[in-house]
Design a protein around this nucleic acid. Structure first.
Lengths: 247, 247
DNA sequence: CCAAAAGTGTTCATAATACACCCATGC
DNA sequence: GCATGGGTGTATTATGAACACTTTTGG
């Protein structure tokens, strides 16, 4: 760095410029006991959008962290887990998307097996719940045992973020190994557990034989997965072969 | 909006929170007369990274525009064109990526035929130039008739942004109709012009017959393109069939 | 025995890839 | 006449989708 640059930086005052707020919001997908695709939403304790449901997330700590780190931190605070599959999704930045001020949201997608999720409502939430994603004529609905949300119950532009996330994950599922992230145990799973994950993400049933063949071609023969050479006994019915993701 | 929310918003003071700056930076790709892939870089007039080469871009106008609009505006100021293929690429947010303060960069990719580009150096630039993208052992180089840049000549983390952009466009070229955006004239082009675009983006030569077949299958038979039923006469050699993107 | 999960085999259409070959034109 | 761009045909193999069929297991 030359003298001129040092002098410039010493005199630079960030406060002289008007700036937006930046948040990281996270679309957390998981599969429930019915193997349905679920999303984690929190019920907002304060204004704006008090009592509405929103994606977990929070403000960037300026000069301290990247938005990736904001997302990781918020995810840990919200679900108690780290070292998780977390991918940047898209950045939402319309000036009026938050009534307080101009807030840029960098959205992330996380895929987490339910067994690893310990859901707790954070500081800014009255409640945190998993919702099944249901599709009907009007668009997407979110339901669980005692609540049904429509898009109007969602805060900010979070319905748009969720739609973008679903579209993205569906586009990726056939080409990227994302589905493995939703397995209860990546080091011991059956082809049919993996098939269930693909089915709920794509929201359609898949052919057993064809799914099997593509698993063998794309993941077993490539060395991405290995055949453990033993069967899964305890599970009712016929014993299924066990596989593991090769780390 | 209820009374409580109105009161909250009236009392909300955005200045109470520390906030980052936000910019939109644009990776502008074009093809030069040799049909090589080029990128537009500007030479920085002021600090920081004075005299270094950087992506065109600029600060978000808070409360006025989305980052998409920032990118459009900057692109217009820099190249004199609008209504252009502009896609959000990725958001870069490491706290130290700009020595002034924490600056979040929302990066965009633009594909523009050279005939539509009128390059002019903006307020913050001494110079604006197209550079060929060259690959060697050390990574990517940027060259034109009188300059060769290495990654060290680039400002900020712009080499990382450019790498991300190249990877993204390569991943999309086989599945998305991005290549059509680089045609001199979308309403009158030959299959071989399109092939050249694919070749420079992928940095490999393609088989004529196979490219042709996939064009027919994916774009002609689907109605995305139409056969104009006439030939391109003026171009030396044998006359080539003309096609148009169906608007 | 039978429903359900687990696993195999066969077929057909479409895609990707490689490559051999012909036509038109300007130098 | 030959290099270059423009264009066609054919063969091989990989992939995707449809579907018929067998095996194992608990109730």
């Amino acid at each position: 760095m030359d003298k001129g640059e040092k002098e410039f930086l010493d005199n630079f005052r960030a406060e002289d410029y008007k700036r937006p707020s930046v948040t990281a919001d996270i679309v957390i997908f998981t599969l429930d006991e019915d193997n349905d695709l679920n999303i984690l939403l929190i019920n907002r304790k304060g204004y704006p959008f008090k009592d509405h449901w929103a994606l977990p997330g929070g403000f960037l700590q300026v000069d301290e962290e990247s938005t990736d780190e904001t997302a990781e931190r918020e995810l840990y605070e919200e679900t108690g887990i780290n070292n998780v599959f977390l991918k940047q999704l898209y950045t939402f930045s319309k000036p009026d998307r938050d009534p307080r001020t101009h807030v840029i949201s960098v959205a992330y997608t996380a895929l987490i097996p339910k067994s690893k999720l310990t859901i707790k409502a954070g500081d800014d939430a009255k409640d945190a719940r998993l919702f099944k994603i249901k599709y009907d004529i009007d668009g997407i609905n979110f339901t669980n045992s005692d609540l049904t949300l429509t898009e109007k119950d969602l805060a900010f532009d979070h319905k748009e973020i969720i739609r973008t996330a679903i579209t993205r994950i569906r586009g990726r599922i056939d080409y990227e190994p994302d589905a493995f992230e939703l397995l209860k145990d990546k080091s011991e799973f059956t082809i049919y557990e993996l098939k269930c994950i693909h089915e709920s993400i794509k929201n359609e049933t898949l052919d057993t034989a064809n799914f099997r063949k593509s698993f063998i071609r794309n993941y077993l023969n490539t060395g991405f997965c290995v055949d453990l050479g033993r069967k899964c006994k305890n599970t009712g019915k016929r014993a299924a072969e066990l596989y593991a993701v090769n780390e």
